[in-house]
Design a protein around this nucleic acid. Structure first.
Lengths: 247, 247
DNA sequence: AAGGATTTGTACGTATGTATG
DNA sequence: ACATACATACGTACAAATCCT
């Protein structure tokens, strides 16, 4: 079998070869075409398959180990640390959404930062406020079973919900915080879903390696009178999460 | 203003600085935080903003010009050749979904392949058939304004919908084809959304370059009696499409 | 129990690409 | 266009852990 490698990698693309190899390995894992599902082929085999040096494969594997996707054991092989993707429900009635409750043991939401700022055009439009009106901006990271699954920024009308950040820090839940302000129920008005490469902030917050993908949701929640109360942009680690649309 | 750059670029990440800058410019364009929407700030300003050398910004811009995202004019500036992302609606009532109709001039769906095959476990479960029952598998690519936006595979009960493929080839529409079989309306029962790197087939069908991202939807449609009639997996080019969830 | 085969980990040297000034 | 510094990619060799006969 003198079958030379496939030469599918791009050499002067601004993306290092080892990163491209890492992406291919991630892909091979997610669609099950690489290895037997639990163990990766040896480095030599991979390097021939991808037409690169073994060191390049090693750099790729090392990044994926760092990320928790793989586990390497000297003399034995490289193994896939697979966990099922968490299914994050997107429902109309946010209140009745159990979120990830049933699928994880430990779920935590950390409050990264909160500031009062004047509403930018986009935020003002979403919350139906005057541009420049004071809004609370709340940045959070949520993790499940010790893995960072999403990071997000939300904006609230600072006049209607004073000291919302303190309440949130205590309850660790937007729903519970709204309840303190007399908003017992609210609905998801609109949701946009897109996907892109993780940016520097995502890499930091979600502990990803470059080239990783995030699912981006941009959503507006209304109270039951139809007034917008929350505008949010959330980035989910695409390797860990899928969105379940419940229509 | 001695405000030094933000140092947000990562230096040892396997992604060349100029490519990271290119990605940030693309992001800045898509959310409108860069320039005035049609013209980019001068290279010097950008290099200060990103904390990199002007040469690096120039490399980034040159790549984006190559890609058709920007247009540089000597002495005048760098301009944005942007098209908005297509917004693909995900609604309960598929029938009333206008799809991309309002957003594009020319929308075409090409039938790539169709075969009758025994239902695999996953397909059988989704369509509530016996495993091995004959199902029609239909592979399509759809393009809008000359750009390939999605490719997908759908499965239908071959017994209930004989010669569905021929009808589809004629009508180029699943909804219209169902109507020929007396199914005038149907609903989207469940939709899973995830994201991953494009695989070899995606690159081929959607004319993407390696490293590109696809949004993956896995959906089941029911007729009005609640019987599943279509199981589909669709890959959208994430650079061109966002999904608008209408709950 | 011993030894060879397999597989991951480490070290060096060289050439090319990338980023800055 | 040039010079410098660092990152990336390849090649080779060998060490360390594990597996199999």
């Amino acid at each position: 079998m003198e079958q030379a490698g496939e030469e599918l990698m791009e050499r002067r693309s601004g993306v290092a070869l080892w990163r491209q190899v890492a992406d291919r390995i991630r892909l091979g894992i997610s669609n099950g075409t690489l290895g037997d599902g639990s163990k990766l082929p040896p480095e030599i085999t991979l390097s021939q398959q991808f037409g690169v040096n073994r060191h390049t494969v090693r750099a790729a594997i090392s990044a994926l180990v760092q990320e928790g996707v793989l586990r390497a054991e000297q003399g034995r092989g490289t193994f896939i640390e697979s966990r099922k993707r968490l299914s994050y429900p997107i429902t109309t009635r946010t209140r009745f959404s159990t979120g990830l409750k049933d699928q994880t043991r430990a779920r935590r939401v950390a409050l990264l930062r909160h500031t009062i700022e004047p509403a930018s055009g986009r935020v003002a439009e979403a919350l139906r406020l005057e541009p420049g009106a004071p809004v609370l901006r709340l940045e959070t990271v949520s993790e499940a079973d010790g893995r960072c699954v999403s990071c997000g920024t939300s904006w609230f009308d600072a006049t209607r919900f004073p000291a919302f950040a303190d309440v949130f820090a205590e309850t660790e839940s937007v729903t519970a915080s709204f309840a303190r302000f007399g908003v017992d129920d609210y609905v998801r008005r609109s949701t946009l879903v897109s996907a892109r490469h993780a940016d520097a902030d995502d890499l930091d917050h979600l502990k990803l390696s470059p080239g990783a993908i995030v699912l981006v949701t941009i959503a507006i929640n209304d109270d039951l009178e139809g007034r917008p109360i929350q505008f949010s942009q959330t980035h989910f680690s695409a390797d860990l999460v899928e969105l379940a649309i419940e229509t």
